[in-house]
Design a protein around this nucleic acid. Sequence first.
DNA 1: ATTATTGTACTATAATACTAGTACAATAGT
DNA 2: ACTATTGTACTAGTATTATAGTACAATAAT
Lengths: 126, 126
Amino acid sequence: MRFVIDPKSGIPFYRQIIDQIQFAIGDSRLCGGDRLPTVRQLAVDLKINPNTVARAYQELEIKGVLNTQMGTGTFIGNEKIEIPELERRRMLNQICTELLSRAAAYGLTLDEVRDALAERAGEGRA
Amino acid sequence: MRFVIDPKSGIPFYRQIIDQIQFAIGDSRLCGGDRLPTVRQLAVDLKINPNTVARAYQELEIKGVLNTQMGTGTFIGNEKIEIPELERRRMLNQICTELLSRAAAYGLTLDEVRDALAERAGEGRA
DNA sequence: ATTATTGTACTATAATACTAGTACAATAGT
DNA sequence: ACTATTGTACTAGTATTATAGTACAATAAT
């Protein structure tokens, strides 16, 4: 998996890393057990401080998304996070509502949103 | 015109305001001469500090998008600005990225979000 | 056991961004 | 002139972000 960070985006480095990992998991480019680059390696690749990478990994570790083992590396967690179905649907609805609300505030239509998401569906699946 | 602020987005309040105004002008929901809410009023509506609203207005004033007059109010400039298609797409992507990231954090997949939106498409207006 | 590799902890620091609070200044309306 | 309404300036506090440096701890490989 290839990571990219955009210093000009204004989005914190550590968050960009987190997002990319979560997305990759979300559309199965990363699966349980997959290994991530080492803290030091990714720091070198992205030309940022190791601590910044570590912070991203840590945050995901806390959330239970990653397993880290000293001396071994950092891996995608094997257990899918168990969230009650009801809670899931509630969250899904909330997210959609918010997405549409914000889109509407910018004059973006539901169709445009759907198209944008459709495009993304094409990107990931290798 | 209705403004929306999402404190959880990580995007500065003042920038969210700026973006919404520009987009509204871009697709003619706001036209030259239209009056914006007063600094104080919008601050109350959004439950934020007046300075934050003022900053947004100021930045747009500098760009020549708005005219402000003390004692009178703040108005959309007469020269229509075009929102480049690229900019539109960038904003669309930003919104999608952010919401998908939150979705991913709850173990929701891109497909699930798309399906949920598809359902809403049938229901009526977004 | 030893060594290399991995992640972790801690401190410090700098820079910046954001917001709030408060007081001020200009204009409109009367 | 007076007052209300409007935008503006100044100051300061708080949080965030990122980096650097150093040392430590756990595991794997040998």
